[in-house]
Design a protein around this nucleic acid. Structure first.
Lengths: 236, 236
DNA sequence: CCAATAGTGTCTATCAGACATTATCTA
DNA sequence: TAGATAATGTCTGATAGACACTATTGG
């Protein structure tokens, strides 16, 4: 049989496959803490519980999995986050009551101010402090997924400046250091922190400053592709 | 409607979902080079081309995706590799001629000698030198997947001794250094290489030695959980 | 002036790179 | 003894940690 004939007679629906979805752990930095975007589920299963923004692939509109991820995140935040990276894929027979299911998970970062303002007023979508997730009733295995995402981001904080994507376009070095400290879970030496970023030439110094009761801090922007730079030696 | 009722009436086949498969890039070290296990495809599509060992999730027998991965690898090699790690998931509308498809990919490592001997005699399964993949006609997007796996393993060689899983249980330090050199793509200082492994206390020195025309090299085994140790500073 | 926050100077410790030297095997 | 391969000694350079110091704002 030729391939052409095979493809003509091939029927995708003839084989039962697991449920396949996409979920994102979207982090931001706001009011000195790390927050995760959660959505209150409007439908069964786990209706009423909080879950990650995500959903099913639409084979008509989405050309790649990343299209699905961006579409779902844009629905909730109004914009496509500047940092999106695949985290892991989880699949087993029991994570979803409907049966065998697989979810492709992503980590995303966004500046809090860049999200559509009504997020805080629409009750179904909320930023939750990543240290208060214990108080939230989470759907499926989303608590584990968030934990894995946070751990991965902690690693990135040790050898990259990826966490900068959770800040506004212009930010200060103390701000960036603080989000790294939150992720790593310990205080860092400001000298060490500044030195490595300076030596790697990752940021562009603007001529603006911002004061918070003391000496004003210089505002910086990320240089192109600084997000993919990795230091050869870790912090912490 | 209660969740119970919802689940009773839920019909998974009502929604079309992408084709979902699992693929593994299984590496080993043999005759001074890095090899990848490839399987000649017996069925359409891409019949006759070479592809990664993998297949579909069997919802009856597999409880998790890792079950599928292990089952498929055992079918080809006779054993379950000592190192299996999720690599990435790729999914889009065009990678498979049958339509929208998603593959969850894994990297695995195994000692060459531990594979079933008949691998080299059965024509449909073959170890291919990872530097000669250009000469092979590969199915789907498997060339890209192998490339991603190799790149990830290169990173691991910089900050871990994960590549040791591609060696037999007992191995010499020059052997381990050589597979790291293959992966990193440059010669390493043996002093540096030995020092870091010694200081991290990752290996157990056996009282056996192996000679290759010069001073015999000491044989080592990995200590428990050495595979998950990460150095704070990279080689290379 | 003081309090607060930003940013620097400089010493130390750690660890990878370089490369010469020594050790132990076979022919 | 020569050649080959394994293993060590030791110096250098890069970079993170520690911590004291200076700088710049507001009150």
């Amino acid at each position: 049989m030729e391939e052409q004939d095979y493809l003509k007679t091939y029927d995708q629906r003839a084989y039962a496959t697991p449920l396949l979805s996409v979920d994102s752990v979207l982090f931001t930095y706001h009011e000195q803490s790390l927050k995760v975007l959660l959505v209150q589920r409007a439908k069964h299963p786990d209706k009423g519980k909080w879950g990650l923004p995500g959903g099913f692939i639409d084979m008509q509109t989405d050309k790649t999995i990343e299209d699905t991820v961006m579409r779902k995140l844009e629905e909730k935040t109004g914009v496509i986050p500047p940092y999106i990276e695949q985290l892991a894929t989880r699949g087993n027979a029991v994570r979803d009551k409907r049966g065998w299911s697989v979810t492709v998970c992503y980590t995303a970062l966004i500046a809090h101010q860049n999200c559509r303002v009504n997020i805080s007023t629409v009750s179904e979508v909320e930023w939750v402090d990543s240290d208060r997730l214990d108080e939230v009733d989470l759907a499926f295995d989303h608590r584990e997924i968030i934990h894995i995402a946070r751990e991965r981001l902690r690693q990135k904080a040790l050898y990259s400046i990826v966490p900068a994507y959770a800040l506004p376009e212009k930010f200060t070095l103390p701000e960036l250091q603080h989000i790294h400290e939150l992720l790593i879970g310990k205080k860092l030496q400001k000298k060490s922190f500044r030195r490595r970023i300076e030596q790697a030439d990752l940021l562009h110094e603007t001529d603006e400053k911002r004061a918070l009761g003391g000496r004003p801090a210089t505002l910086y922007t990320m240089k192109k592709s600084s997000g993919s730079y990795t230091f050869i030696r870790n912090l912490g």
